[in-house]
Simulated assay, not measured.
Amino acid sequence: MVRLIGMAIGAIFVFVLAWAALVPREAAAPDPVKLLHKEPREVSFAHSGPFGTFDRAQLQRGFAVYKQVCSACHGLYHIHFRNLEDIGFSEAEVKAIAAEYEVPAIDPNTGEAITRPAIPSDKWPRPFPNETAARAANNNAYPPDLSLIIKARKNGEAYVYSLLTGYGEEPPAGFEVPDGLNYNPYFHSVNIAMAQPLMVDQIEYADGTKATVDQMAKDVTAFLRWAAEPELERRRQAGIATLIFLAILTVLAWLSYRRVWAGVQH
């Protein structure tokens, strides 16, 4: 009797497996977010390609966009003020930029916490003291640090550029954007907490360049690429020099081989 019950249970189990495997299932409903999400647009820069170099004027414009727009919410934690000399600012200009900011310090006489004007060796100050304060000021959204954002996102430059210029598009009919969020098809969930950050003529460029949304987006994207890889040009120069050296070494090795074995008959 026990054997028959076991066989019956086994048969039922096999039947259920066969049913699940053979009976066609209903097609899953497509994810509406995936249908609305767009891949980043193509964008090129002076530093693109293996031989590209940074456009210092563009980097300085991008720094102006970051300083006047992005720095209110986003940090640049891995950059020191002195690093700005790499994008064309003089030592005096870097000192002046640093002096505009206050950084935490300790009074050597009393040991109390104070603030002091920043100096070139200081890191760029954080916009918020901690994550809790950042979320409290941004409707519980946490603005990411931008130091490595280009490296942290797939197709980093194209992604950041597309995100900054993707606010003009309207959501399709019937798609509701939750309160407190904004529609941007280049964001992974198409609903982003950050409001449109760039507006036409929002800042005034020192070199007279027209501050369009597209121009500012490209400039700040180039600046953030430099922030993520400030050694990019030097690494490329070292790589090219290494390839040239190896090419010359290969030719010399081949000529030496021919000379050593020239008198040997096969």
Rank of each mutant, 00 (worst) to 15 (best):
P50W: 04
G239T: 04
T132Y: 13
E102T: 10
T165P: 07
L224N: 01
D207V: 05
T250M: 09
G75M: 03
Y167G: 02
A118W: 01
D214M: 01
L164F: 08
A262F: 14
E169L: 08
D219G: 09
A262K: 14
E170N: 15
A8Q: 08
H78F: 10
L246V: 00
A28I: 10
F245L: 05
E39S: 15
N140I: 09
A173Q: 15
A11R: 11
A152T: 08
L246T: 00
E85Y: 03
V103W: 05
M199C: 12
D214H: 05
N109Y: 05
R82G: 06
I203G: 02
A238H: 06
R259M: 11
N130Y: 06
L84E: 01
L224M: 11
F175T: 07
K67G: 00
L76R: 08
A98Q: 00
R258S: 07
D219M: 02
G208N: 04
D207F: 12
A193Y: 06
T110L: 01
N140G: 10
F45G: 05
E112N: 09
A195G: 15
V220N: 06
R61N: 13
G75S: 15
M1K: 15
I12M: 14
P120D: 00
E176P: 10
W261L: 11
A193R: 06
T165I: 09
R41W: 03
A141K: 07
R82E: 13
G168D: 13
I248N: 00
T115F: 07
A8R: 12
W124I: 07
F187P: 05
A64D: 06
F223C: 04
Y101L: 01
E231I: 01
V220E: 03
P172L: 09
R126W: 11
Q196L: 03
Q265H: 14
Y77M: 15
I79S: 11
S71V: 01
R135D: 04
I240M: 08
K210P: 09
I12F: 14
P125G: 08
E204T: 15
L163V: 15
P32K: 07
P30H: 00
H47C: 09
L181G: 04
L163S: 09
E233T: 14
P230E: 00
I149A: 12
Y186K: 10
V16L: 10
Y66G: 00
E131G: 10
G52M: 04
V65G: 04
E157P: 07
T115S: 12
T250F: 08
T132F: 13
E204M: 11
H266E: 13
Q196Y: 02
L84S: 02
G75H: 00
G174V: 02
R234P: 04
G52A: 01
A228Y: 05
D31I: 03
R259E: 08
D145W: 07
H266G: 11
P32R: 05
E169V: 11
V14Q: 12
F15R: 11
V2F: 14
Q202C: 02
V177F: 06
N138D: 03
F45W: 01
E112R: 14
A11V: 13
V103C: 01
R235Q: 14
A227M: 01
D219L: 03
A173G: 11
A92R: 12
Q237P: 02
T242H: 13
Q237L: 10
A217H: 03
I9E: 02
D55W: 04
P108C: 00
E204G: 07
C70N: 06
